[in-house]
Design a protein around this nucleic acid. Structure first.
Length: 256
DNA sequence: ATGGTTGTTGCACAA
């Protein structure tokens, strides 16, 4: 099973590139973030014509998450399912595909450490843990994947010294991510690339992609039984090149 | 130290 995650930064603006990419890469499951579409504007028929079932949790204008699958799509849950307050933003959707319970997540950016949005980000990560624990257990096949807006370690940013005091790298949000992993997840990309300074997002500005100034903030977390099946992981940098790319590249993992 | 680009919406803001 080939599973991918991609923050497309507007599915309306990116649909042609996503269609082209699906035909090229042939993933069995694609989790998308930042569709920026209302549910009634989601191009489900376009994806159906390419052989994918789909589920979308959108709000229009901002956020919006989706899952496409060629290997079944059941038990769809939009938003959190931990019994707490629902997220007012459309940032998480969960479904079972090919025997794996998969959540496509768009973690709040945080904006800056002194911003209210940063506290929302920390609360959101805590509720994500509650959501995962409510729906599944670590001995099952579970994946949480998407744009975490958190670089797990300094190996995941181009220049840690330039980012001191900034969101995406701060200790409290890294601790939230570590707590999620401690529940029973492995970072599937890092498992296959233990040393690499390899990124999944580059700012559109100032030639950052060309200059290699990026971060690895798009993650695929899998439980032990998923990690044991994972025999390949890559960032598809080609999708960040060319005309009208997203500022994120897809992350692809293969499960035997 | 700052700004730079893109997308959405509407003439700013989020990323």
């Amino acid at each position: 099973m080939r599973l991918a995650t991609w923050n497309v930064n507007s599915l309306k603006a990116r649909l042609a590139r996503v269609e082209e990419w699906l035909a090229d890469v042939q993933p069995d499951v694609l989790c998308m973030q930042e569709t920026k579409l209302a549910d009634d504007a989601f191009p489900a028929l376009t994806f159906a014509a390419l052989g994918y079932e789909s589920a979308h949790h959108g709000q229009g204008q901002w956020n919006g998450v989706a899952i496409l699958s060629k290997v079944g799509l059941t038990d769809v849950v939009a938003n959190f399912a931990d019994g707490g307050e629902p997220d007012p933003d459309a940032r998480i959707i969960t479904a079972v595909c090919g025997g794996v319970r998969i959540s496509s997540v768009y973690v709040p950016n945080g904006r800056s450490l002194d911003h209210e949005h940063y506290q929302y980000k920390l609360r959101w990560m805590a509720q994500l843990r509650a959501h995962v624990a409510a729906l599944s257990s670590p001995d099952e096949q579970v994946v949480v994947t998407g744009d975490f807006n958190i670089a797990p370690t300094d190996l995941d940013v181009y220049d840690p010294k330039k980012l001191v005091g900034a969101t995406h790298v701060s200790e409290p949000e890294r601790a939230e991510l570590a707590a999620l992993e401690a529940w029973g997840f492995t970072d599937l990309f890092r498992q296959h690339h233990p040393e690499g300074k390899l990124f999944s997002w580059w700012d559109y500005r100032a030639g950052d992609f060309h200059q290699g100034r990026g971060m690895r903030i798009d993650l695929v977390l899998g439980t032990a039984s998923v990690a044991a099946r994972c025999d390949f992981a890559i960032v598809d940098r080609n999708a960040r090149k060319g005309a009208s790319p997203s500022d994120h590249a897809p992350v692809i993992v293969d499960l035997a």
